[in-house]
Design a protein around this nucleic acid. Structure first.
Length: 595
RNA sequence: GGAGCCUUAGCUCAAUUGGUUAGAGCGCCGCCCUGUCACGGCGGAGGUUGCGGGUUCGAGCCCCGUAGGCUCCGCCA
């Protein structure tokens, strides 16, 4: 037996007990005579005191201990010398006086200090097994475990059944780029790793499972981001005979249970609901961060007849004029204006007009073009006061909204409004909401075809079904929804198409040929013809959820062994070359120009 | 595919306008130290300033290129 207790288990009441502890040497303080060791395991720290007068031989050994050596000590629990208690430690009133020391393993010189903030992620990833010993990361992994456990417990209690679906799956044309796996037994053919268990879970509905869930690994071969990894985990849910309201309340209950169980946080339910149109109009984003204000204001009607050509041109072309009012921002610097203008251009605006209100004056390159009536409209609609800074966008609705939405986020960042909100009124720390009624289809100029905004199995809203026959594709709304937390999309789902005729219509709209429909989706279409119940569901990004719960800014910090920016695992050095014989077995030859 | 920021000792960082032998703290090695908890003291080792080129009497610093890291855009049904 290596230990009788953990390093965060013993208290005053245990004084006098003979115990054995095992763990890592966190720090050693060697006074030449007496030696203090903070012994660390995953639960915490316990001070171990080696005294020559107690046991000269053991004390002598202890001189050689270095950080991260793995040891086992046996001794008695003692009260600390009065006045030397450490209130910073849970075990700070006591210490262990060992009569035996076993060195289980030595540690080399360490790649970086374990108790400091390390920004060199490259280095951390190379020695990830060591990096993960750091308390913050080990806490994150345990939060993640509790989230998964709470999810399973909640869904189990609701009658949901966890079912695994294949990892070796089939490539489909829509959506993200697939990871391919060559088949040895069928040379020249490939499996694909699932981007999501979407089709399988729908087929489980046809199978009569009625309530399915899975904590599912998903794979997408796309470029990485702080919140995007090539493999990630979804809480995947699907149910039969449900409406969106059923999915909303199930998800709300589940998230409340997760936050309560994993982090003792009370989540207010039900969540607010916004339509896609409303979210984009008011916040310039389909995943609005509502922890601060700065809502977009529509000024189109006030400038319909304006002499200011930039606004007039946008309106005459069917666009809009919108603005945001940023309080206490009139002190904006030239550099910041330039930066915001740059952002505006990246997202499609021709420029970024602004008005600073300083010394009761409207300072702006454009205000001279405005009539008195237009100024009055601005004054009342934007509630302009001293110190405000107004930004304008005049463009197509989508572009004007997105530009101001991005400016809004950047300005909030500059003003540190997220931080203020988090410290401010309780309840605003965790702002959940539903965004619903997304468009069903989106025109891709690049591919010269209509694409599914969500996926091709998403159900159009019943009210909009006629628009599908009329081929008014841009106007069709989907029975689809996202759940958003603090401006981060943490999940999304939809009601699915369960009628084979409607699914065929949808494929037709998407330009999937009759041949492809059979070869790629034949199994699904056949299944729909065999008594498929109405069904729908949702998938939540487990990594992002845990990231937010842990207060982290990257999902890498809540994954044990993530990949870097370029999809490399610096610890194992993967991806890597393979033995040519493996390629031969698979009938694969590498093209020279790719090497 | 594109943009931005970054790269100096094992780690975190410094180095004035381009100017002597590139420094400090932590870590490491050695010695000392009996109540510390970021223990303390003395000494020591450790550097191709990411790499390549250029300008210059002289480059860590300026210029060009390149590699790597991170963030973002595109991409992510």
């Amino acid at each position: 037996m290596y230990r009788t207790h953990t390093c965060n288990e013993l208290r005053k009441i245990d004084i006098g007990k003979q115990v054995t502890l095992a763990g890592w040497v966190h720090v050693s303080r060697d006074h030449g005579g007496v030696i203090f060791i903070d012994l660390r395991d995953r639960e915490g720290l316990m001070q171990v005191v080696f005294r020559p007068e107690e046991n000269a031989e053991v004390a002598k050994e202890a001189h050689h201990l270095r950080s991260e050596d793995v040891i086992e000590v046996t001794g008695r629990v003692a009260a600390r010398v009065p006045g030397t208690e450490n209130p910073k430690l849970a075990t700070g009133d006591i210490e262990v006086i060992p009569n035996r020391l076993r060195i289980l393993n030595r540690a080399d010189a360490l790649p970086f200090p374990i108790d400091a903030e390390i920004h060199n992620e490259d280095l951390r990833m190379t020695s990830r097994y060591y990096d993960l010993r750091r308390p913050q990361l080990s806490r994150n992994l345990r939060v993640r475990h509790r989230v998964a456990k709470a999810t399973r417990d909640y869904l189990d209690a609701q009658g949901y059944v966890e079912i695994e679906t294949p990892i070796l799956s089939k490539s489909t044309p829509e959506g993200a780029r697939d990871f391919l796996v060559p088949s040895r037994l069928t040379p020249g053919k490939f499996y694909a790793l699932p981007q999501a268990p979407q089709q399988y879970k729908q087929l489980l509905m046809v199978a009569g499972v009625e309530k399915y869930f899975q904590i599912a690994k998903c794979f997408r071969d796309e470029d990485l981001r702080a919140d995007r990894q090539p493999e990630f985990t979804q809480i995947d849910i699907e149910a039969s005979f449900v409406t969106p309201d059923d999915i909303f309340s199930l998800t709300e209950g589940m998230l409340a249970a997760i936050f309560k169980v994993a982090c003792k946080i009370d989540v207010k339910t039900p969540f607010d609901r916004l339509t896609y149109r409303e979210a984009v109009s008011r916040y310039g984003s389909d995943k609005p961060d509502r922890r601060f204000g700065i809502e977009l204001v529509d000024l189109s009607d006030d400038f319909r007849e304006t002499g200011f050509k930039v606004f007039r041109g946008a309106l005459d072309a069917g666009g809009v004029v919108k603005a945001i009012n940023v309080k206490e921002f009139a002190g904006i610097t030239i550099g910041q204006i330039d930066e915001l203008s740059e952002i505006a251009k990246i997202f499609g605006a021709k420029g970024l007009a602004f008005i600073k209100i300083e010394s009761s004056e409207w300072k702006s390159p454009i205000v001279k073009f405005f009539s008195d009536a237009e100024k009055a409209a601005l004054q009342s609609k934007l509630k302009i006061q001293e110190g405000d800074c107004i930004f304008f966008a005049a463009d197509k609705w989508e572009i004007a909204c997105e530009v101001l939405g991005r400016i809004r986020l950047r300005v909030a960042e500059i003003q540190n409004l997220h931080g203020k909100a988090a410290k401010g009124q309780s309840g605003s720390d965790w702002d959940f909401l539903w965004v619903m009624d997304f468009p069903l289809l989106q025109w891709s100029a690049e591919e010269n075809k209509w694409n599914a905004v969500h996926h091709p199995f998403t159900r159009p809203k019943t009210k909009d079904l006629a628009l599908l026959d009329e081929k008014k594709f841009s106007e069709i709304r989907a029975e689809a929804y996202d759940v958003v937390l603090n401006g981060v999309e943490i999940g999304g789902g939809s009601m699915r198409i369960h009628e084979p005729q409607l699914q065929e219509k949808m494929f037709e709209a998407l330009g999937v040929s009759a041949e492809d429909r059979q070869s790629l989706f034949g199994h699904l279409l056949r299944a729909l013809r065999l008594g498929a119940p109405p069904h729908g569901g949702i998938a939540l990004g487990l990594d992002r959820l845990v990231m937010l719960l842990c207060g982290e800014e990257s999902i890498r910090d809540v994954m044990a062994f993530p990949k870097n920016n370029r999809g490399l695992d610096l610890m194992t050095q993967s991806p890597a070359d393979v033995d040519p014989r493996q390629l031969r077995d698979l009938g694969i030859k590498l093209a020279k120009e790719k090497l």
